[in-house]
Write a protein that binds this DNA or RNA. Structure first.
Lengths: 349, 349
DNA sequence: CGACTCCGCCCAATCGTTTGGGCGGCGTGC
DNA sequence: GCACGCCGCCCAAACGATTGGGCGGAGTCG
């Protein structure tokens, strides 16, 4: 009863608008319509200006949108990319992803995002799902620093790029985490801190490793090497930071400052400091990393190293796109920046 | 030079595996392969057990995955759904989305998520993009309570469902926010609070409205109506909560408790309380909503109303799927639960 | 022994798009 | 006036999967 509408009224036109719909209305072949509506870049065998104009008008009036499935089938290009993150509920990754989606949208791409939970099996499973969806490439926000799990992609020849975390020998867009670690160290050194501790994040991530590495290097170069027992791995969330800080504060004399490689971990550290009746920024200074919006709003503002998360997402997508399109590319390091707030102060005597 | 591999070796087989690849290897027609590999539910015109077995083995060995574009083109079903959220960098929505993605994955669907920023134009734009991608349905996590912006979907006959925020007359899966507001009120009433304030969230959202409404109703019924000037709209983030709290605390006598309709807003409230030299849970009690993981880890643990965010996402997808498949469906209300921590205490005299 | 049924498979059309190959007709040059 | 070129368009063949329609052969039954 509600069939393909044989009323002669051309405007509301039931059903989806296809090239054929337009071709019939314009009294022309679908090929012609396709060629007219193709992006000007690949404008070969063009039509007469009048025909083109007429076709464009009809297409606009009907609200024609090319069917991505038909197009993908023919061109073998889906204009889809997969994005793998450890957890989307991690604000840092969510923000990076916003950048990715932003850039992808502008380039006419859509993204599937999915979380791997930093779990090997799940990562393989999700990658498989993305490949089954025929994505044009994959952006990895969860790469382990040893590059394991990238073999499959290389082997299959799937374009990919890393974002947030780097791995030697693979294309990536990351914050210059080594420099960021140094910034934190220099800030604390300038405030007179000599006896410090590090909440170091997960040891299989370049973010944790590099930030810690840069920090330790700067202290060592300044003549105040940080002993091993003052460095402790941790999760990247509040709980992880709190647990690591409790362990660090429990043993021996109190450090005068703690550097956490992630803001949420730093918030956990501040909680642990408070639990001992101390105030962050007075008895114990605390530095975080990333500068999430929350950092500025805390009762005691968190001193932190700002990383350009949104920008990182955008550039990460741009890098992936360059690889997909076979253009030249290179890995990128984005500059971090120190933001001093109330959680750091001069070292107590 | 790297063509379709005419070596007789059947196993590594260059290029993508299609039905034809399998058909040729099995010496059978593609139709037969398609029918064998179809889900058992729609098993009509089946093959002989031997043929079927052989086909399945070859498919498994080659790692056959049906091309979603070919399938979508033919069946007019993309197995794709769009998800619209205000901001993915909002932990609450990110968690709900994790639930959505979880359920979608299990059902063989993939999801596009995109943020509307609660902006009318952007929402229309993103919806359009999703429709252009030929999604089978749309899940809305950003619906305004007046249901505006849903007209387009209804009109076009696109299956949709609401999650997190409801709108009268539209299918939704939400937390029972009215009940949640009451839970918060009852908790504070039991602690002896009579003079309270509300940080009410955005007035165009059912979450803000219902949580506030339930809270106010319970206080009114208990004989302690909350005056208008003690209720103030706010953003759902830390800054929004802080700003609203500063306004509320500035005028007249201090309330003994503040209910914020969102945990992050509550964190902002606690910051404002601290700024005045007061301690949350002593001079001023604070209650939040959602129970995000951070709430338990704060220096002063946040009393809050837990909402089942992950579950909400899962059920939301299930509801959408029911509509897509034309099954019967109904809106759902999920039960909230009060979690008492240190940020609430007996009302001071 | 013939007719009928049904099983197991193949044929062909279709979804919407892109793209190399033709093919008339008009304009130009000699 | 004829040959040639090119402009503007149409034709047809893909891409991979699904699905109604046939068709030969084996089995059943009278």
């Amino acid at each position: 009863m509600d069939g393909p509408a044989d009323d002669p009224d051309p405007t509301p036109r039931r059903g989806p608008v296809t090239l054929r719909t337009i071709a019939e209305l314009a009294g022309v072949h679908v090929t012609t319509v396709s060629r007219v509506l193709a992006p000007p870049a690949q404008a070969v065998r063009t039509s007469s200006p009048e025909t083109a104009q007429r076709i464009r008008e009809i297409a606009a009036e009907l609200g024609y949108r090319p069917d991505p499935h038909g197009r993908a089938l023919r061109t073998n290009r889906s204009h889809l990319v997969g994005v793998l993150v450890p957890r989307l509920a991690d604000l840092v990754l969510a923000t990076i992803y916003e950048g990715v989606e932003d850039a992808a949208g502008r380039a006419g791409y859509s993204t599937f995002v999915t979380n791997s939970q930093d779990d090997v099996a799940r990562r393989a499973d999700r990658t498989d799902m993305l490949l089954a969806r025929r994505v044009d490439g994959i952006l990895l926000g969860d790469a382990p620093v040893d590059g394991s799990s990238l073999g499959l992609l290389v082997e299959r020849g799937v374009p990919y790029a890393l974002v947030s975390r780097r791995a030697p020998g693979h294309p990536s867009v990351t914050c210059d985490d080594l420099a960021g670690g140094r910034l934190a160290a220099e800030h604390l050194l300038a405030l007179g801190h000599r006896d410090v501790a590090v909440v170091a994040g997960e040891p299989y991530t370049s973010t944790g490793l590099d930030r810690t590495g840069g920090f330790l290097a700067a202290f060592a170069e300044a003549g105040h090497p940080v002993p091993d027992h003052r460095v402790r791995r941790s999760g990247f969330d509040v709980r992880g930071g709190r647990e690591a800080a409790e362990a660090l504060l429990a043993t021996g004399p109190l450090p005068t400052a703690v550097f956490a490689v992630n803001d949420f971990a730093a918030i956990g550290v501040m909680g642990a400091v408070r639990d001992r009746g101390l105030t962050p920024g007075r008895e114990v200074s605390v530095v975080g990393f990333n500068d999430v919006p929350l950092a500025a709003e805390l009762p005691v503002g968190l001193t932190t190293v700002r990383s350009p998360m949104h920008e990182m997402g955008r550039r990460g997508f741009a890098l992936l796109l360059a690889r997909i399109e076979g253009r030249t590319w290179g890995s990128e390091l984005l500059d971090p920046e120190l933001v001093a707030r109330a959680s750091t102060g001069p070292a107590p005597r």
